[in-house]
Structure formats: C-alpha cells, structure tokens
Design a binder for these strands. Sequence first.
RNA 1: GAGCGCUUAGCUCAGCUGGCUAGAGCAUUUCGUUUACACCGAAAGGGUCGGGGGUUCGAAUCCCUCAGCGCUCACCA
Length: 954
Amino acid sequence: MALPKGAYNPKENEQTILDRWLEACAYKPEYDPKESRVVSFEEMKNDSREAWSLICPPPNAYGRPHIGNISGYAYMDVMARFQRMNGKKVLVLPGKDHAGLEGEGVFVREVLEKQKRDKFDMKREEFYSEMMDFFENNMDIAMKDEKEIGLSADFDRDTFTLDPDIVETVLDTFVEMYNAGMIYKGVRLINWDPKARTAVADNQILYKESKTPFFYFKYIYKTGDEKRAIELKNEFEGKELEWNYERNMTKDGKEDLTFSYGHLDNLEIMGYGYSNVQSGDKIRGRVVGIQMRLDSKYRLVVIHPDYSGDIKNDIAQTFLFEAKYYAGAHILLFEENSNDSDYTNGFVIGTVRPETVFSDTAIACDPKDERYKEFVGKEVEVEFLGEKKKLNFIADFAVDKDFGTGLLKVTPAHAKEDWEIASRHPEECLPAIQCINYDLTMNHISGEKYSGKKAKLVRTEMREDMLKKGNLVYVNDEYENKIQVAERTEAPIEPLLSSQWYLRYDGIKEATILMAFNEHNDDTNLEQSREELEEILEKFNSVGANNYLPLRNDLPLQKSLPEQNEDIETRTDSKATNPQPETHNSVHIHPETMVPKFNHWMNNLRDWAISRSLWWGYRLPVWYSGEVKEVIDENGQVKELIMQNGTFVELEYANPEHIKVQKESPGESWIQDENVLDTWFSSGQWVYATLRKHNLMDEFFPSDVMVSGFDIMENWISRMMMFTYFKEKSIPFKDVYLTGLVKGTDGQKMSKSKGNLINIDEVREKYGTDAVRMVYYYQNTAGADYAMTYEKLDTFKKFVNKIWNASKFVEMNVDGSEGVGTNNNLSLQDFQLPETKALFNHIQEIKEQITKNIESFELGHATYNLYHGFWHEFADVHIEAVKKYTYTQRDKETGEIISEPKAEEKIEVGRVLLYALKNYLKMLHPFMPFVTQRIWDELEKEEGEHEFLMYCKW
RNA sequence: GAGCGCUUAGCUCAGCUGGCUAGAGCAUUUCGUUUACACCGAAAGGGUCGGGGGUUCGAAUCCCUCAGCGCUCACCA
C-alpha cells in the first residue's frame, strides 16, 4: 500500500484502470454507485438521481477518428465525469456516422479501386452490404480510440446512423415532413458537372480565374421614331458644327477618351476626341453619328476634325460609358453602315454567356435606377438575331445599377443568381426555359442554326451573327472573371435545371432562431423581430404546416426580401429591451460570439436539396408507379415523365397514382426512387433518433450538452435544432460547446504535406493520456484554435509527475498517523496551526473557482486554476510551509538535532494534507482521470468515498 | 463584396461584464536543493497590450478610425 518509487508511468497503469471501469460498467447509467453494481434497465429508470445526458457527435466511421474528434471526446468527458461526481445519473451515448457522400467516396477509392473493381458493375444490394462490412470493421477501431482517451461513454449503446432503428426514425420523419408539405419535389437549378454527369453540391465547387470575352449585346427595341433618326442623319451627316462646350469629363485610368457635352438648338451634342478644352471655348467638330435614347431624345455625336483614332471602336466604348448615364442609347455611325436596323434603340446588356440568351425570360434593373423606371413592370417586345420575342422588365435589388449598363438578362435556367431573382418574381420570370442539354449541346430552343452544336462553339458563332444583325455592341476580350469548376473533375460547372427533392425550412427555421435567441440577437442581426417569429411559429403550430405553407409545387417559394436601404437610425440599443428567453426552451451556444454567425446562417437559409445520387445511405421512401425520366419539352421546360399504361405522361407530384411517399413498397410494380438522403438529414435527427432507439427519451431527453467543432455549427447544430423542433417540439440540448481546430506541432493547420500531423498513439504512449487531455483544455477557450505542441505535452507530462510525487509526500506523512478523521466533514475549526488553516482555506477557494469555471464551460480557466493551484500553491507554498512540523530540524554544520516534530502537530498536518490531496484528486479527475484514479487507489477510503473517483462527491 | 473574429513578453497563448506594480508555459540568465519530485526549488531580465483618436477619476478591456492577418458565406450579370 504505497505508491512505487520513481516517476509515474502512464503506460503501466492506464490500461488496467480502463479495464476496471469498463468491467464494472461504471460508464453506464445503470451503474449504481451506492451499491457499486449494475442495476437493471427498469431500476435505472426508477433511480431518482437527476439525469444528465450527452449524445456524442458521431465521427465518420470510414477511418479512425481524427485528432479533432478525439479532442471533442476529452471535453465531453470532463463534463460527464463532473456530473457523475455531482451525483447525477449520466448517459454519454456514442455513435458512428455513415458519412454518405464522403463514406461512399472513401470506400470506392480505398477498397474498390484498389481491387480494380467498379461500383457500376455491382448490384446495389451487393455494394451496400460490402460497404457495411467495411464500416463495421472500422467502427471497432474508432471505438478503441474513444475508450483510450478516457471517454466515459456507454459503449454498449454505441449507435450507427444506419442501424435499423435509426433508419426507421429518419424515414418516418421524411414521410411526416412530406405529409406536412415541407418536403417537395421540384425542378430547380442544380450545379451540373458535365464530366461526371451528376449534380454537385455548392461546397464542392471551386472558383478559377479566367479570361472570358465579355459581350455587350443589344436587345433591339423599336421606339417608333426611327424616321426622325433618318431625317437627322440626312441633315447633319458629315457636317462640321460649332457648338458650345458645357462640361468636360475625363474617364479615369487607362482608357484615354475625353468627352465633352454641349447643345445646338434643341439637340444635345456629345463630342469626343477633345482634350484639355478650356471652359467657355467653342468647339468645332464633324458629325459622325446620332445617338438615340430609349426616351426618344437625340444627340449628335461629333469628333474633332483632326481626330485620327479608331472611330468605330472608340464609339463603342463611348457608348458603354454613356450607357451608364443614359438608358438604352444607341449610336449610328454615318460612315460605317446604313442598314436600317442600326437606327433602332435597344436594351444593352453585358454577359459572358450570350448563348443563354435563348433562355432569357426577363430583363432586370436596379429598383433605384431612374434610367429604366418607365419600363419596370411592363412587357417589352425585343428583337434578337432577327427574331422577335417578349420579355418582362423587372426591378430587383440583386441588380447593381452601377455595374455595366445596369441591366441584367434573367436566365433562370442557367444562372444561380438569375434563378434567385426569378424566385422573387415568379410571375414574370418563370417558367424557366432551358436551351442547353445535359451534354452541353444547344437544344431546339436555340433555333435551327445552333441546335445540336456545343454551347461553346455557338458562343463564337453568335459573335459574328450578332454583329451582322446589329445586336452586338462591344466585346471586351480582356475581361477577367472567376468561373465555377467542379472540385473533383475540374470541369466547368453548368447550372441546369433538374428535379430534386427539397426541404422547406419554414416554421422550423423560426423556431430555431428563437431557440438561440439571446442578447446577441439585436434587431440588426435579424430580419424578423422576436414577435414576428413567434407569430409565424404560432401559426405554423396551430394550423399545421400543410395549411400554413404554400402547397407543394415546382415553383420556388415566394418570399419578400427586405429593402436594402433600411433606416440605419433604428440600430440603437434594442439590446436592453430584448427579453432573455426562458432557460428551458433555449439553447445556449458557447462561446456566445458564435451566435451572430449562427443567426447570419439562419437568416440566409434556402430550401435544402436533400437527395443525393448515391447508394450509401437512406434510400428515399418514395415510390413511382412506373418508370420515370427527365426531358426538356418543346418550350424548353424540364419535366419528369412517368410510364403509365405503356406511354409516358407528365409526372404529377401531387398525384398518388404516380407517387407515393411511405416506408414500405406500395406494391410490386412500384419503383423506388434511386436517390438517398443527404447525410445531414440523418445527423440532424441524431439526438432523438438515438435516444428513441434505446428507449431513453423519457429519462434523457432533451440532452444537456452537445460538443461539436465550430465548423459544423451551421450545418449540424442548426439542423438538429430544426429537426428536433419538428419532431419533438423541443430543444435537442441545453448547451452547445463548440471546440476549435486542433493545430499541428508547429502551430500551423495540420496537413499531411506539412508533416505536422499528430500521431495520437505515439503521443499517448510517450506522454500519457492525462497529459494529452490537459493540452486540449489548458488555457483554451470555446471555439478557439489551439496547437498540440511537444512543449505543451512535456509541460503536462511533468505536471502529471508532480501530482504523483506530491501524492507520495502526502502518503508518507499520513501513513500510520492516527485520527486523520472524516475528511468530508472537516471545517476550519478543526485546524489550529496557521499553515494548516491556510491550506484548508486554499482548498475552499480553489474549489469554488473550479466549480464555477466548469459550470460555465470555461475549461481553460479551470485547468489553469488546477495547474497553478496544485503546483505553485499547494506544492510550492503549502507543502513547503508544513514541512517544519513533520521534519526533524538539524543544525546544518554540526548535524545536531534542533527540534523534533510534535505528534499532535504532525497529525494535524497529515490530516490537512490528506484532505487537500483528496480534494485535488477529485478536482483533477474529470480532466486527468487515469493518474488521479491510480493515486486514489492507494489511499484509504473513508465512509462515502467510492472506489472510483468519478463517483466520489465533488 | 458581406458577416465574424484575431493582433498582449523571443515563441504559443490566458486576461469574462473597464480598477491595485499586465499573467502562464516554453525559451534566456543567476542562485539553490539531493529527508515527494532534476520531469525540482528560489529569483531575474524581457511588453509604447498592432497604429491613431475618443469616452472616463481610471482602458489591454468600451466607442471611432486606420493597418495587417484569419475563418465563413456570396461572387457580380
């Protein structure tokens, strides 16, 4: 019964201790610390201890948990052990994630490709079952890591996202949401990867710098006064005029065009080719053209008689410059062309993709743009390449009046931004028309000449054609932009229409914003006030989603967006008036600074595309009564057809003869949708899905804390809140602790190429698990990144050893002493000596600080208190101070005994030392479970002190 | 472009709602100790708390502004 000599050896002790905990089932809520045994499930439920639960975020089960996952376990474990020590019945529920897209990717790469096999040679069932084997194998490895870092979780209840019970819950939710009108199928814009022939998610897109010709083309618009233009031409062609200069404008930067303006009779005059004109001077120049504007005003264009530049090109650029100030201007060059089509006005629009013009459904301008005001809300008939078509003219805040000519062609089928504009103006902009096929050839919508040709080729051909037909104004060949490229294939993304399943967030979104509502949510952060949100929610809950929401259809949700120029004065302190939410129905995010970020995300939520064309995951519980295919019809609209009695008819999403949404097949002839659900659809249900599976809802729901990396706060935390609200009308958890990013040994972001990766086995072996854990906690704050450096590891290895040695000292001084007494009931009155009193007080103070810090999730502070308190106060000050009562004092030179320790004093010192040590061990235990348990094992227990520190009273 | 954050000792970082001479670890220098611990102890040096301005009796801490860096989102027809 004595701690062995020498330094603490973690390797020798950790496994033994871990095995004892596991064998005793000490991690399970069924463990009864009073009787030190495992009770039945029913007994556990009747156990009156307060329940506390934490559901572990499931790591991707295709490999070992990474250092970030493991750091998460360390945080979770502190909380769990702390709660046990405070007498709670604790459930820590671990799990593993199937990681749909990524999981399938890893399996295909790591297993199939190495075996030179192809997914598409396999049957779906065969593929699925092989993958399941692969995952099951990996899950055991992952669980080993969880155990070794000391995570005190109920490993018997480890849950996989594809466990049958979980699948049931997830699919039930899908059906319920569908029935509530929240899940719908619709034709929407997707990011089409033409190389992989699949849709890719927004976050799998990269942006690549590229030089693309930028076309300014004209939608010819006849104003009916072309005759007047011809008269002006005849009157002024080639004449030299003398006119009064009014103002001089110099274009900044590289393009050295100089303009001047003036009047002659009733005609405005614009001259160029003039420079350094003095105010008030007369200007003389030759008329080269007439500029017409959509409001039918005319302007003569003149150049300096000595001008020797490239008139045509200069005028084109002049025109662009002008277009910024005068809508729809058009210039006639008298010497260049006499084709009548050149006398027309038009809407000039810039684009890098003229081939999509055939899909335009509207022309949009900035609502603040005075130039086009008179056209907004009207239908205009325009001409392009000799064809007439009608377009709606709309105003939308997404258009910037200062960019280009301030006009935007709305092409909902082929541009994301346009799709969004269209969704705000469905009447004017929809249905979308698709003119490009999935193989990037043009389809029938683009007319006979281009149909069947590659879109890129058509773009070049159109340049010529537009010029001939008077539709081309100017091309900037030096234009630089960023094009979207698929991350995997590097193929340029083509936005196209395709049918997808979507989840509409209405109702659950408002609920979630309210859940996280706190003092950070002032009016500047939220589109809607708390009152409005509550109103929406009340409506959502009282009438049911189906009545509240617009019916499912393939139109995007109509939504009014706020005016951009809100009065900034309203920003003032709404902070003070915002009521704090009730504790029981709100989620507290730590650190609070993440809340505005969270709100930003929530306010910008769009309908979520939940289907993925994969095999690994939850296949959609959707059934079709016949074969389904997607086509582009004669009007360019993407439609799904379904085989009915031998012919294809249009698939009606609301027709139960065509589609049924249910878990079981409606019958043999019904065909199940090929897609699986996005992984977040299941992880978003993780809290209640796991607790339901284990029949623990009554006891442990809602859970207490969720620990997660801050990088998935938006994707995961918010979805758990939304799903849980939908399904349980409750918060999923009370607190969210966000962890930062673990950086490498050199303080840089960990990456294989930098060679700064941490090998967890190696580090644990060399420094011990307790030291590794301390590095995660020490001086770290929620959400902050931190580096796992060898210096820090070394520091805490030494700290572990310091605890070890100080314990040996205490042991030496209490061993055999009588009357150490009931440590749990000691008070200041039990101590007489100033040194023992001081130590006793120190323990009270530090305990108070540490308790407060753990409860407020300030683990960095708590470990700082512990490190500093144990080492520099307990060991360096207090232990040194009491030594004089326990040592025989000798004269340094002679070696003669000066004084002997007094028995009474020695006992008192022993008592306070043991008291201090035991309390420190308890306080250290949640952070450093192994070494503290090891030392605890050596100490004599008093009544009420449990064999396991995690069940000792805090 | 928008949102959020960071900038404190040579290095890595704490410092929460403003308050006594601004802290820790590592590193550096000096001294000490071998009766818990050399994986030790005592002490020292080292900081215009990114720059500038403001509020205040008082600011690293609050406000404004500038600069540099980082993350996230959106990318401009």
